[in-house]
């Protein structure tokens, strides 16, 4: 997979083409991809797309219905524009999702590689993963919030920690499998060190499993952020978050349901996008599905 080997990039390119072709031919995957694109554009460009700053209050126009002039999705109890807050909340959700995936990858992948490669480390790392698994993410978040108070970092760290053990297990299983393959044996005979084997041969082949696991973590982290912020353990007001919007809206549900409807739809669309796209990606990356006619 390095510059020394001129054949590998061609083969990799072919694989990538096949994966993309399979994704393109899966209608649910395309729907998921389009949803994701919309969500990512909405999140990344929220500051430019939103008509108002997310926390700007309009005391004269609270509880506006959706589709009123000036407020496309209406306003909440303080007259804040729901559309602007949903866009910024989506941005915050994606931030927490990406941060927690990064944390899970940065900690989980090296530990998984090492545990799969050296048996003596396996016992230590697997025990560590067991201990981490014993703490549900909400409990980690509760503990962190008790120490630091809530915040976007608190949510991301709690959700990242919660996803490290499964990442370790996925990478460890891949390493155990790949360690026995012929090309690793060939690398051994050419006197390649552990670093070269793990980094140059095992990791690139484990990449698809890692990517699939990341698409599993993302929606659960987005949901987790909403739950934590809803409970007051995640993002703190006045910062916009879809979870905070839901908890605010709950108090005024009897006056108007709309400020509580749109953030929920936003969370659902983000998660649906990742779930659909992740499923399609898993099917596309799985070489076994090419022999069948797909789903």
């Amino acid at each position: 997979m390095t510059a020394v080997d001129p054949v590998a990039p061609v083969a990799l390119g072919r694989v990538r083409g096949r994966v993309l072709r399979k994704l393109w031919h899966n209608p649910l995957g395309v729907v998921g991809g389009v949803l994701l694109l919309i969500v990512i554009v909405a999140g990344v460009f929220a500051p430019w797309l939103a008509p108002y700053p997310p926390s700007q209050v309009h005391f004269t126009t609270p509880f506006q219905q959706p589709f009123t002039v000036g407020f496309a999705l209406g306003t909440d109890d303080l007259g804040r524009d729901v559309l602007s807050r949903v866009l910024h909340g989506t941005r915050a959700s994606l931030e927490v999702g990406v941060l927690s995936v990064l944390l899970a990858v940065v900690v989980g992948v090296p530990l998984g590689l090492l545990a799969g490669y050296w048996r003596w480390l396996d016992a230590v790392v697997s025990r560590l993963a067991d201990v981490m698994l014993a703490f549900p993410f909400l409990i980690v978040a509760v503990g962190l919030a008790a120490i630091n108070g809530g915040g976007i970092g608190n949510a991301a760290i709690a959700l990242g920690i919660a996803n490290i053990p499964t990442m370790i297990r996925v990478v460890r299983a891949e390493t155990l499998r790949l360690k026995e393959s012929d090309f690793v044996l060939a690398a051994h005979t050419m006197d390649a060190g552990a670093g070269r084997i793990l980094g140059g041969h095992v990791l690139p082949n484990a990449l698809s499993a890692i990517i699939v696991q990341a698409t599993v973590i993302m929606p659960s982290a987005v949901l987790g952020e909403a739950i934590l912020s809803f409970l007051g353990l995640g993002i703190q007001p006045p910062d916009p978050s879809l979870g905070i919007m839901l908890s605010d809206a709950q108090q005024y549900l009897f006056r108007t349901v709309w400020p509580g409807v749109f953030p929920g739809i936003a969370i659902a669309l983000i998660c649906l996008g990742f779930n659909l796209f992740g499923d399609a990606l898993r099917d596309a990356l799985d070489p076994k599905t090419s022999h069948r006619e797909g789903r």
Binding site: A226, F230, L246, L253, G260, V261, G264, I267, C271
Partner: peptide, 22 residues
């Protein structure tokens, strides 16, 4: 199952309280 996995269930809970209960 896709619906139940993607929709935040606590949001459904809030809506359920509003419609089914209230």
């Amino acid at each position: 199952s896709l619906f139940a996995l993607s929709v935040p269930t606590f949001w459904l809970g809030i809506l359920a309280v509003l419609y089914l209960s209230v």
